[in-house]
């Protein structure tokens, strides 16, 4: 779970940084018109920064999110319930 969250943050950060740089900021190429000066989406540089931050935050997530603890006494499967014993009640 922890690894999955960290990986998602890492990939999400890379994707956000790449998309904001190549697709949302001002187009790359010689500035032959005003459209080459203005970003395609206002605030694209902020999104790029957010992407970079997400990449590094994935390290924090990986270290801070606790490991899923395996249950000490797993509930017996129906096959393991001894004959005649009552099934454990579900707690909500």
């Amino acid at each position: 779970m922890r690894g999955m969250i960290a990986l998602l943050m890492l990939l999400g950060g890379i994707a956000l940084a790449a998309v904001s740089y190549f697709a949302l900021a001002a187009p790359l190429g010689p500035p032959i018109g005003p459209e080459y000066s203005n970003p395609r989406l206002l605030g694209a540089p902020a999104l790029f920064i957010l992407g970079i931050m997400l990449i590094f935050l994935s390290a924090v997530a990986y270290e801070l999110i606790p490991e899923a603890q395996p249950s000490a006494h797993p509930a017996p499967t129906p096959r393991e319930v001894p004959p005649g014993a009552t099934r454990p009640a579900a707690h909500g």
Binding site: Y21, P39, I49, I52
Partner: peptide, 26 residues
Amino acid sequence: NLFLYARPQSPFYGTFTLVVAGYLFA
């Protein structure tokens, strides 16, 4: 304005995003 309009081809974009935001945050 840097957050809103910075242009990737400008070296200022790199100094602003990579040095201050990326590098400092990392």
